[in-house]
Design a protein around this nucleic acid. Structure first.
Lengths: 113, 113
DNA sequence: GGCTATACATAGTCTTGAAAGGTATTCTCG
DNA sequence: CGAGAATACCTTTCAAGACTATGTATAGCC
């Protein structure tokens, strides 16, 4: 009923950006992306499977990523994602828009006298 | 076709918080809330009608706001919204969660060596 | 053999922001 | 007076995206 969820795992609208950012460092498979984000955020951000894989597929469709199957160090079958040039451009656009947005929000939220 | 819009008017998930914040300063009608947010953000954040009024109604339903009809300084009929104690609590919860979230995202986005 | 961790996937639900359309009133200005 | 801009509200419809739940499969370990 009146469950008013606070604390979504992620701030909506930032998932693409963070995926792009992890892949900008090096190509990686999905599971590793989620782990990387969790680790870098000290456990505060949790990317759910059900958010991650659909997002990756949408991003493939947009041409920001390429994917190919391979094997992990653990000898496991996994799909490795790599940024395309369009993806790199997108990362820059998204993160600068994000920074601007955050600044604007902080202006609004700043406790004024 | 492949139009990938950047620049939504608002970062999703932050509208309630900003509405609560403006009303924490003083009771206000909808149109004024939108203007206040636009002004405080120096024009960077634009709250559309079609986002604002449905959001206000949802917030009434959640018990975060109360509303009553009155007249503006301009001699116009308008609906004035006021924070309830639950709304004030919600504002604090949301903004602290937001700050935490932002810090976590910035950890992820920080360009590492 | 059973357990845990790794790795991927999808169907279904819900929330939410935006677009598009609408009503009505006040004020200004020519 | 008439036109237009600005103020103020509202609703319907749509699309995107994040989450839940569920499922598959395999590797490594005890």
């Amino acid at each position: 009923m009146g469950e008013d969820n606070l604390n979504p795992d992620l701030l909506p609208g930032t998932l693409y950006m963070m995926i792009l950012r992890t892949l900008n460092q090096e190509p990686m498979h999905g599971y590793a992306i989620a782990k990387r984000i969790r680790d870098w955020s000290k456990g505060d951000l949790e990317v759910e499977d059900g958010s991650l894989y659909p997002a990756l597929n949408r991003m493939l469709g947009k041409g920001w990523l390429k994917a190919e199957w391979g094997m992990t160090e653990n000898n496991r079958r996994a799909r490795f994602y790599k940024l395309t040039p369009a993806g790199k451009k997108r990362l820059e656009a998204e993160s600068s828009a994000f920074n601007k947005m955050i600044k604007a929000i902080q202006l609004v939220m700043r406790t004024s006298s």
